[in-house]
């Protein structure tokens, strides 16, 4: 019995080790005071300092943050409205819309990337800020819809009627009942969209041009040239952003309002 238990725990640990060890090594080496070797030469902040001193990198990071903030916000507004509509109303093409949202989520990034590239080229839109923004909003929407829809489906389906019964207008029902109850899921959807946008390589690869560089693509071009402590530091920072966003999002999604 206890052997079995030990085997189970060992297996879980093994897989968690597989998932986390490489990341851990990356993080540790971002603090290593050695430029070329993997030998541990002591703790240093030099690589982070180097990142801070790089004005180009600052611009690229700001570009990414701007795209992530804007795309997450627009996707959250559209996705939340879509989820509420999917939950509350019957309308023409509802099943199709539901299916489309899931198909969009499953579409391989590369397929979406070249499809949007063809669209933007055909419309003669110059590749850069706007095309990137449109693309990021598009791949974020399904995640917001699913996040909000899964929370809203857990509600008592008579809550909206109860609000109206007590005298609330359509707007008051949205403002005082629906929105506060959805708030955690909406916020979680925003955070996840932000993360998706900050981390996306494949779609962005096709839909942005040299005029507008973003962090994941910058990292990609750096990484292709080899391993450096600066990249380690930059990747660690990216990991930190993702980690905090995901932790907050998960805490919000877990809260069931009790």
């Amino acid at each position: 019995m206890s052997v079995k238990r030990a085997a189970r725990i060992a297996y879980l640990l093994l897989i968690y080790g597989f998932l986390y060890l490489p990341i851990l090594v990356l993080v540790v080496y971002s603090f290593n005071d050695s430029k070329y070797s993997l030998e541990w030469r002591g703790l240093t902040w030099d690589w982070y300092q180097a990142l801070l001193d790089d004005p180009d990198l600052w611009q690229v990071a700001l570009n990414s943050a701007l795209i992530a903030t804007l795309s997450a916000t627009v996707a959250t507004v559209i996705g939340t409205m879509a989820a509420v509509a999917l939950y509350r109303y019957r309308f023409f093409g509802k099943t199709l819309l539901n299916g489309l949202v899931f198909v969009l989520m499953l579409t391989p990034d590369i397929v979406m990337g070249i499809a949007l590239l063809i669209l933007f080229t055909s419309l003669s839109l110059p590749l850069g800020f706007w095309t990137l923004l449109l693309a990021h909003i598009t791949f974020s929407i399904p995640f917001v819809v699913v996040s909000v829809l899964s929370r809203i489906s857990g509600f008592d389906r008579y809550l909206i009627e109860a609000a109206k019964d007590l005298g609330a207008s359509e707007f008051q029902t949205f403002r005082r009942v629906l929105l506060p109850m959805l708030a955690p899921a909406v916020l979680a959807g925003w955070l996840l969209s932000f993360t998706l946008s900050m981390d996306d390589v494949m779609v962005s690869f096709f839909v942005t041009g040299p005029s507008f560089e973003i962090l994941p693509l910058k990292i990609y071009s750096m990484v292709r040239l080899g391993v450096t402590p600066e990249i380690n530091a930059l990747c660690t920072l990216m990991l930190g952003v993702t980690l905090s966003m995901v932790l907050v999002a998960q805490a919000l999604l877990r809260d069931r309002g009790t």
């Binding site: 998932l19 986390y20 490489p22 990341i23 090594v25 990356l26 080496y29 993997l38 996840l192 993360t195 998706l196 900050m198 981390d199 390589v201 994941p216 990292i219 990609y220 990484v223 391993v227 990249i231 380690n232 990747c235 990216m238 990991l239 993702t242 980690l243 966003m245 995901v246």
Partner: peptide, 15 residues
Amino acid sequence: PFWTSSLVRTYAMVI
């Protein structure tokens, strides 16, 4: 890890 950038994780593998 599901939400973590695959690029960063692939890079970690390179190390």
